[in-house]
């Protein structure tokens, strides 16, 4: 039904250079509905959409990684390096090096890659261990230095600087707010209270995770504040997650409604627009699903 509803005259049926075609419209509507049909129950439409998604995604990603991970950095790089004029250098890791050195380094990388793949032939062999060890070592070093700086040093600096209570120069005075300029969240008083809450929450949460010695009544009370802080944090994270998921749902609905445009009508501008066709499609889907058993779905 949806396909019928999309037989408009003004939009081309298929055009490589455009995404606004009947074919893309059909596919968008079909796959959106097929994925949402899982909310009712598992079914062949959902399975088709799932498999197509995984297949297309894998193909696209494989091509991208080949292009940017093998063709560019190894094949093209070596090709360019071999065709350089005498006394020309290649930049590698921020340093200008002789083309022979650059080619050598890339070849070493290619050999390490092949050693990693040798796991497919002989899983317990020694060859994959060397590149794996190198990768883990380099990754750990890169992560450790960067993360320590950004998530520890600079975060501590931000909190302990002036007791963590510094407010920006642009903060409004309370009297300015009372006079009607700006919002309460821009005032120095509001920001200061926020900073105090931050420091108390941070200390209480840290104390909650302190298991070095047995805690007395005082520390237990502080620990309770830490739990409340954590709960508020998890609540905020849950709220933001819901926000994101709803945004995605709205975008899908909006996308499907795009095909309610008169351009996509079957018979002129007012007849048989997409929403009725969509509703019919959903009803047919539900009827089909109600007749299906778990075995039927497994068979697909």
């Amino acid at each position: 039904m949806n396909m019928l509803a999309l037989q408009a005259a003004e939009v081309p049926f298929f055009d490589w250079t455009s995404t606004n075609t009947h074919l893309s419209g059909w596919l968008i509507c079909f796959f959106t509905l097929a994925i949402f049909s899982f909310l009712y129950k598992d079914n062949p439409f959902y399975k088709i959409a799932e498999h197509v998604f995984v297949g297309v995604g894998t193909a696209y990603f494989a091509l991208q990684y080949y292009n940017e991970g093998i063709r560019g950095p190894i094949v093209e790089h070596i090709d360019r390096a071999t065709n350089l004029a005498p006394n020309e250098f290649v930049t590698l890791g921020g340093v200008d090096v002789d083309p022979t050195v650059a080619i050598g380094v890339r070849l070493v990388a290619a050999v390490l890659g092949l050693m990693l793949l040798s796991r497919v032939i002989k899983p317990s062999g020694w060859a994959p261990r060397w590149p794996l060890a190198l990768m883990v070592g380099i990754y750990a070093a890169i992560k450790m230095t960067g993360e320590t700086q950004s998530k520890l040093v600079q975060q501590i600096q931000g909190v302990v600087k002036d007791g963590g209570l510094t407010v920006p120069d642009s903060a409004l005075a309370w009297s300015d707010f009372m006079a009607g300029s700006g919002s309460i969240t821009q005032t120095a008083a509001y920001l200061t209270v926020g900073k105090i809450v931050l420091v108390i929450g941070l200390l209480a949460t840290l104390i909650h995770f302190m298991f070095t010695f047995k805690r007395g009544a005082g520390l237990n009370a502080v620990s309770r504040v830490g739990i409340v802080t954590l709960m508020l944090t998890f609540g905020a994270m849950f709220g933001f997650t819901v926000l994101g998921r709803i945004a995605l749902l709205i975008e899908r609905v909006e996308n499907v409604f795009t095909f309610a445009d008169p351009n996509y009508a079957v018979l002129g501008e007012s007849a048989y627009l997409t929403p009725p066709a969509l509703i019919t499609a959903v009803i047919i889907l539900v009827l089909v699903l109600r007749k299906m058993t778990g075995k039927d779905v497994e068979a697909t």
Partner: peptide
């Protein structure tokens, strides 16, 4: 990290 260190090395 590679882009930060040297854009010219990261992209040929």
């Amino acid at each position: 990290g590679s882009i930060g260190q040297s854009l010219r090395s990261a992209y040929a």
